[in-house]
Simulated assay, not measured.
Amino acid sequence: MSLELKIALVQSALIWEDPDANRAMFAKKIAAIRSSVDLIVLPEMFTTGFTMSPKNIASSEGSKTVKWMQRISREKNVAITGSIVFTENDENYNRLFFCFPNGKYEEYDKKHTFTLAGEHEVYTAGKSKLIVQYKGFKLKPLICYDLRFPVWSRNTEDYDIILYVANWPKPRIDAWDTLLKARAIENMSYCIGVNRIGLDNLGHEYSGHSAVYDTLGNQISYSEDEEILYATLVKQHIDSTRNKLKFLEDRDDFNLI
């Protein structure tokens, strides 16, 4: 019997720069998720919205949210991931946490900070990739603007799933749709994209379009509404596609320096 990974994507509006309110809101949404889910995915900066004012967020909020994620992960026996504003050693990061039910977690700092919004001026860019091993699957989590850079996303680690959490605005949503599908096809992996919806306090509108694509770029889940999306990822689909179509064996060999 092939391995399966059942995922829930939480597409939601966010409350501007209010971690307590966002944690309470997401706690209610998560409580309604089916008990059979293996992984819950939240948007980018899910406790604040895409703020360029990390000084408005208490430095203790990052650790508080990680503990909140750990508690939910343990109670529901499910992994949970999403990115938050995180302050460490007087540096601010757009940091993704992947929390496991056993209380452990792994982290990834956004590599490509969004210069158009000045993110590079207030958040320190990450330098390292992350591959998460979970329930027989290898996942590569990335954050929003990373989607535009195929070299950083390239499947050199033979991962099974590439995952993006985002605050991707409506005016450029066609690029989001196109690039998610492209990342699935070129890397022969499942591709997950979780976006927010609604307006933020800066007047930016977000239209969702959270989606899941299979290894051939077929869309298997999609929504523009405030809701929870579900999908089941099947290891046999990955293996059979790659065995039949050996495109990854012809990929360019390169090293990032």
Rank of each mutant, 00 (worst) to 15 (best):
E119Y: 07
Y105K: 04
D109Y: 04
N92K: 00
E61N: 13
V165L: 07
Y108L: 10
Y134P: 05
Y93T: 06
N92W: 02
G62I: 02
G126L: 03
Y123Q: 06
N77R: 14
T156V: 13
K140P: 00
R154S: 15
E157M: 08
E107H: 05
V151M: 13
Y190Q: 01
S83G: 01
V66F: 06
D158K: 07
F114C: 03
L147E: 06
I131A: 04
T178Q: 14
V122N: 05
I185D: 11
F137Q: 04
Y164A: 07
A182C: 06
A117H: 10
E107D: 10
K140W: 00
V165F: 04
W68Q: 02
K111D: 03
L139R: 00
K170L: 12
I162E: 15
G118Q: 04
Y164S: 08
W68N: 00
Q70G: 11
A175F: 12
N94V: 09
T65E: 12
F100C: 10
P169G: 03
P169W: 01
I143V: 13
D177V: 14
D109G: 03
G126V: 02
S63P: 13
F86C: 05
P169R: 10
R154K: 13
G136H: 08
D158V: 00
E61D: 15
Y134V: 01
A182E: 13
I84K: 09
E157T: 09
F98Y: 12
L163G: 07
L96G: 00
T124P: 01
E119S: 07
E119P: 00
V122K: 06
T87K: 14
G62K: 05
N89H: 12
K64G: 13
Q133P: 07
I161N: 06
K76H: 15
N187W: 05
K76S: 08
L139D: 01
H120S: 15
Y108E: 06
I72L: 15
T124E: 13
Y159G: 08
F97P: 04
Y105I: 00
Y108P: 01
G82F: 09
C99F: 07
Y190L: 03
T87H: 11
P150N: 09
Y164G: 01
K127M: 09
N94P: 04
R154D: 15
K110G: 02
R154I: 01
I72S: 10
D177S: 14
T124K: 15
T124S: 14
E121C: 08
E106I: 05
E75C: 07
V122Y: 03
D90I: 08
T178L: 13
L139A: 00
E61T: 12
N77I: 05
R183V: 10
F149T: 07
T124D: 05
V132Q: 11
S63D: 15
N102L: 03
V66G: 08
F114K: 02
R71E: 14
N187D: 04
T81V: 10
Y105M: 05
